[in-house]
């Protein structure tokens, strides 16, 4: 289908790029991205993906908007406090771009629902804040052969990696098992600069766009680390682990499972 004059205008800054063009923009319009977590990372990612014209965006989160979220979760506004995050996110995305479809999943993602949830999507974006969820998303994406972007942020630091099926190491290759509850600080306990979500969440959106249009080098086989205080970006090479429990040569994890959810003590 040819792009309408309105679409040509809305997406002109994309289309004018030789790496995108009308072809790339049509790929973006036809693409489906699932964002798990409508928080510090998911908020900026969702804004940019909606603005870019990603045709179908799924957003999963069980929480409601809290006043303390607004320091960084830029998709929600003050009148949204108390509203389901997925609905608040959907309203903002559709206000930016009424042409896209936003599917909302107001639920915690767990082993019982994750395979069905990711099945319809081309790319998954992990914007969760806890390790059981990060390992669950990793395992499910490896098993379902779905590419995904992992990210984490804390204080003045952030990290990011992209998994592409059969191409690179997975999150479990690097980190093996979730740490025990409270062994590693999360941003609730440790704090985070709001703009960190903007930097790292936007990079996740960028990886999704590059994957969709099939251009450039993805962050597969590397962990990007960002230290804002030192203003230092580093790409650390990641070896693929042949005995990885989920993506290795003889995997022992054959279906997704839940680690006991660490109840965050505030």
């Amino acid at each position: 289908m040819a792009l309408s004059n309105e679409q040509l205008e809305r997406y002109s800054r994309h289309i004018i790029l030789s790496e995108v063009g009308a072809k790339g923009q049509k790929k973006i319009l036809d693409s489906k991205v699932l964002i798990i977590g409508a928080g510090g990372l998911g908020a900026p990612a969702a804004l940019y993906l909606a603005a870019a014209g990603v045709g179908t965006i799924g957003i999963a989160d069980a929480d409601e908007v809290d006043l303390s979220n607004l320091q960084r979760q830029v998709i929600h506004t003050t009148p949204d406090v108390g509203k389901a995050k997925v609905l608040s996110a959907q309203e903002t995305m559709n206000a930016i771009n009424p042409q896209i479809t936003v599917n909302t999943y107001r639920q915690f993602v767990d082993a019982s629902n994750i395979m069905d949830l990711i099945a319809d999507y081309d790319f998954i974006l992990d914007g969760t804040d806890n390790f059981p969820a990060k390992f669950l998303i990793n395992d499910a994406c490896v098993l379902a052969k779905k590419p995904f972007s992992h990210a984490g942020i804390i204080r003045f630091k952030g990290q990011l990696m992209t998994y592409v099926p059969d191409k690179g190491p997975c999150y479990r290759c690097v980190f093996r098992e979730p740490p025990p509850p409270d062994a590693v600080p999360t941003c609730r306990q440790a704090g985070v600069i709001g703009a960190m979500g903007g930097v790292i969440g936007s990079l996740q959106a960028m990886e999704a766009i590059k994957y969709i249009i099939g251009k450039g080098d993805l962050l597969t086989g590397y962990l990007l680390t960002y230290d804002a205080l030192k203003m230092d970006f580093r790409k650390v090479k990641l070896p693929k682990v042949s005995n990885c429990a989920v993506c290795g040569d003889s995997p022992s994890i054959l279906k997704p499972f839940d680690y006991e959810q660490a109840v965050c003590k505030v």
Partner: peptide, 10 residues
Amino acid sequence: FLYFMGGGQR
């Protein structure tokens, strides 16, 4: 050194 980094949702 590669660190566990959670955070980003709530």
